[in-house]
């Protein structure tokens, strides 16, 4: 069983309790405008290109079997359209300007990498987090990985946007210790506009997990101009209070780190606001949410 991932990061301290290893799945059914991981959108492997690092050596052009890299007019032109992400150009690039994003990984390899940090999990109450992209966009791989980790005694978190088949989520229940479930927008129309997908299925899945005894942390990206408003926090409070599985609410203030990555992918960023949203600025809303729900609320 193999899955397409774009990163495995150790010592993750923001993706669930304790010290965690996070596997980032590549591919996502949503297109949130503010996404800070635009390289996770499409499932196939692709090339990130940082023009400012390019030394115009032409090593990539020599390696590319399809002739997609061209050095002309004192510049480096890259025709992405025909690229199948073989990664040879990135392997040859001496300047680190080209980077292959996405690789296939087997369950055993991912698990053995995760188990290297087992000592840290036991010392800190940490474990493995499946994130993305959207892990549930590769349901078989997600299940196999979560299951084998769970059997190895590793605490498993699943970070999901919730846009997936209910049966797939149901199969995850026995081997996921904690769901980090995104809650982006309550309004269906706004959800469609900002994420490209309907939220009815998401809300249904959230309710379903709660009914089935899933333990849930509600993860709420807070985006100025999108959902940084009173009505949204009230919706968050309602969603949390009405679901007995929700144990905690995390507020995730907007940061603009996705803009540069989108540019390196040759895409136009969906959201061009370059200002960080200050953590402290959300403290009053966090206080209010605590008061409304009685739940712990953290600002990530």
């Amino acid at each position: 069983m193999r899955g397409m991932i774009f990163n495995i990061q150790r010592f993750c301290v923001q993706d669930g309790p304790g010290i965690r290893t996070t596997v980032f799945f590549k591919g996502c059914p949503l297109r949130c405008a503010w996404c800070h991981n635009p390289e996770s959108h499409r499932q196939p492997a692709e090339i990130l290109f940082s023009e400012e690092k390019c030394v115009l050596c032409g090593a990539c052009a020599a390696m590319c079997p399809k002739g997609l890299h061209r050095m002309d007019g004192g510049g480096h032109a890259f025709d992405r359209a025909g690229c199948d992400g073989c990664g040879r150009c990135a392997g040859a690039c001496p300047a680190g300007a080209l980077e292959l994003c996405g690789r296939w990984i087997g369950v055993d390899e991912a698990l053995s990498l995760a188990l290297r940090d087992a000592d840290f999990y036991s010392a800190s109450g940490g474990g493995l987090t499946l994130s993305g992209g959207e892990p549930m966009a590769q349901p078989e791989f997600a299940l196999a990985l979560a299951k084998s980790a769970h059997e190895a005694g590793v605490h498993v978190c699943l970070e999901t946007c919730g846009f997936c088949a209910q049966e797939d989520l149901e199969r995850m229940l026995p081997c996921v210790d904690l769901f980090l479930f995104d809650f982006k927008l309550a309004d269906a129309e706004a959800h469609r506009r900002w994420t490209g997908a309907d939220n009815a299925r998401i809300l249904k899945n959230l309710a379903f997990l709660g009914e089935q005894g899933g333990r849930i942390v509600l993860r709420c990206p807070i985006i100025p101009g999108v959902n940084l408003e009173k009505a949204h926090f009230e919706a968050v409070a309602r969603a949390a209070s009405s679901n007995r599985g929700v144990l905690q609410i995390d507020l995730e203030p907007y940061h603009p780190l996705g803009i540069d990555k989108a540019q390196r992918l040759g895409r136009r960023p969906g959201f061009c606001d370059t200002a960080f949203l200050d953590r402290e600025a959300l403290e009053p809303q966090a206080q209010r949410l605590r008061a409304l729900t009685g739940l712990p609320v953290t600002i990530v």
Binding site: F11, V13, G18, I19, D119, F120, A123, S124, G126
Partner: peptide, 9 residues
Amino acid sequence: GKLRALIRV
């Protein structure tokens, strides 16, 4: 707390 755990290990 996570940093402390790292040091303990």
